[in-house]
Design a protein around this nucleic acid. Structure first.
Lengths: 146, 146
DNA sequence: TTTGCTGCAAATAGTTTGCAGAGAC
DNA sequence: GTCTCTGCAAACTATTTGCAGCAAA
């Protein structure tokens, strides 16, 4: 996990460099994503901001998350059921471990993970831009209460 | 790629064993998925069946794809944009290489791919049930016409 | 004959968009 | 002062569901 304050600063810097206005709503979304506690979805970000921004619209959250994603400052995690969750703390490809029971998401340290991008590019002729590695299972907490 | 006829047979066997009726529509969906040419989405399966089953409903395709998925005979590939595509030819986790330009999907042979399931289970305490490894990029064809 | 399956149409849920006013710079 | 951003409500799209009739076994 990166330092959330540093990540927030980096996001703000990118926004400035690309001439986007720093509205309170936009900065608030950026701050939540810089922490990315639990890899929130749009709804969670919205709920988290409601107390401080009672009039904020869900559409505004969507627009800002999309903007940050297009700037490469947020990683989008889409799931087979169509749901999306976001990580603005580590906005680069990295493996995830997802509990299908409580929907918790963990970032594991995989010592044996080598980058297979070159091999894939070599074998398929593709220019590889990004990748994704997710493991699905049941977490320790859920296992113990079953 | 497995032999589509064998896969079709295996799917039919599973349907029988689970006491599901073998309607013409269901068998037609199973046949398309046994081939899984280009990893179709529901719409594509529907279009492919329209000539032979002009009155078939999209809902029927959805229902049968979901049934086969629940029986473990189809692998669902969900993407961040919310779209889903299916593979009934190799219904077990395997890596995919996806062209973000023409949406083509390829199954690469990765000689160096080791199974990291045990390591992830060990490090996180999860009971790992499945996983997913996707590479995104631009295919040779699209690269050459850019 | 029984029970599950299909087609249709309506409902649903998550996300996007048009517009007029507000606010960042 | 300009131009982007926001809130609202409506639109949109992919998917699911209720229901009555149909068909597999």
């Amino acid at each position: 996990m990166s330092d959330p304050n540093e990540r927030f600063g980096a996001i703000v810097k990118t926004l400035r460099e690309n001439n986007h206005k720093l509205t309170p709503q936009r900065l608030a979304v950026a701050k939540v994503l810089a922490h990315s506690q639990g890899h929130p979805n749009v709804e969670k970000i919205y709920e988290q901001l409601m107390p401080s921004f009672p009039t904020m619209s869900l559409a505004t959250v969507y627009r800002n998350v999309m903007l940050l994603k297009s700037l490469g400052e947020v990683l989008e995690l889409g799931f087979p059921d169509g749901s999306n969750r976001y990580d603005g703390n580590k906005p680069f490809p990295h493996p995830h471990v997802i509990c299908i029971h409580c929907t918790k998401i963990i970032d594991p340290d995989l010592v044996s993970l080598r980058d297979m991008t070159a091999e894939v590019a070599d074998e398929t002729g593709f220019k590889i831009l990004t990748h994704r590695l997710d493991f699905f299972g049941i977490c320790r907490d859920c296992l113990s209460t079953m």
